[in-house]
Nucleic acid binder design. Sequence first.
DNA 1: CATGTCCATCTAGAAATTATACGAATAAAA
DNA 2: TTTTATTCGTATAATTTCTAGATGGACATG
Lengths: 264, 264
Amino acid sequence: MKLDDLKHAQRERLIFLDRCLTWRGMANRKDLIDRFGISTAQAALDFRVYLGLEHSTPPTYDPVRKTYIAASEHESLAPSGLTEAFAILTSCDESTPSSALPRPERKADRRTIALLHQAIRLGKTIHIRYTSMSSGADEGQWIAPTRFTSDGESVHVRAHSFKHSEYRNYLPIRIDPDSSFEEKIIDKPLPEDVDWNTRAIIWLRPKTGLSEEQAKVVRREFGFEGEWLRVETRKALEFFFDRRWGLDTVGARLERAKTNYEPI
Amino acid sequence: MKLDDLKHAQRERLIFLDRCLTWRGMANRKDLIDRFGISTAQAALDFRVYLGLEHSTPPTYDPVRKTYIAASEHESLAPSGLTEAFAILTSCDESTPSSALPRPERKADRRTIALLHQAIRLGKTIHIRYTSMSSGADEGQWIAPTRFTSDGESVHVRAHSFKHSEYRNYLPIRIDPDSSFEEKIIDKPLPEDVDWNTRAIIWLRPKTGLSEEQAKVVRREFGFEGEWLRVETRKALEFFFDRRWGLDTVGARLERAKTNYEPI
DNA sequence: CATGTCCATCTAGAAATTATACGAATAAAA
DNA sequence: TTTTATTCGTATAATTTCTAGATGGACATG
């Protein structure tokens, strides 16, 4: 029996179960019951199915502690990062304020986003009034949006600007909600979005000036063994990279070694 | 009929449906079928149930475009931020590299996390060897972990340090996986974690020096109308705030106006 | 006008889930 | 020691949810 053979609902439950075992090292039927609102019988069945999965290292039941204990060499069914781990580890306490630092959440206008999405889908150009931080509000312009992107902080629209004859990243929130949003079919094909279709491979290393011991900590923290950490993104997003990774701050612990570009 | 009356699986589907309508402005049965692997009949039933929910603004079916169209004043069933929006908007394209900038994902040792989780649950102290960036590896110390926290980048353990006689935030990845992890019952009650139990209310304003027009953009972007943006967290997490919000970088567009503290 | 693609609906049957009851092992309380 | 509570497991029948497969309607395309 494999995870993919299951229905979506049960698969979700088993993945949750797997994450409990991975990060808490233990799991109970109650965890499933609280999280998914299923019956004890169903939770017991889920455990049965989980144990029946193709597993190198199934958990064992500890009658003393009355829980399932993950094997010491437990291997996760579905990979999960620290974000998922944190969700699992704090799912019990519903305190306010939360135990997570609030993020600077950017807003967006529902209708603007939907109109952009539609223009992308149908391959149309759309008329907007845009306010940039540097040059202020414009008098309106035609753009041909191609896709949504994210720099980890907020969502951007990648679009061909006819005004500037190039592809740019726009922040939907800076589009005037009272723009005309007039649409037009794209008459002649757009130029290729070269920066989007270029892979940027960024090689990072522990910041110069760190002691060898500190460098070792940095390597372990970011999960690389050798000299460099390899990160891959698109050239169109590279502009946001340094800020997102905090390379431009004084306390930075990584720095760029080199960057390669190659077409995708 | 209310959303909460439904089973978990169907509720998930309707929330997804609601988000499609919110951010794409449209939805099809196919969206549900692709996402959850259900049959067309079930997807049709889900639509029926969705339309039967207590709704101020139900979507309408457009036979020309063959999709459901969200009402122009559509109100979301479940609130969702830009993160969920982005997931909805890009769920169609499975390209590599992704359209999101990669985040600096910190690693963590499975076993260490599970042991800490256990110590928290059972209220024990635990012996670890910790390497700090500034003072290097120590010879081992007893800490009493109380909870996991997150600064948005990585996960921390908040723990009382007997060595320093205060509560501190530790990075699990810097705990030596070969520590003894010996456990002891806490003999005398720990002191109160004052910083954790203090609410920090941070008031932000557009950075001094911005023009009135720029300030207006910043206000809209972060979603506040008046003079200040109010953000609430715990004093124990305040240390991470400026970095997370980028207040310490040159391009910062917000600055602190004042900070109030009050016990929780 | 045929074709394809959405939508909707119907039915029977399969699958998932619940409700309920019962038994065993363990720890803590009476 | 006995009782109680909690956790696990199992089994059954009833119920709900979902699927498979067929049918039909509305609309666009060529």
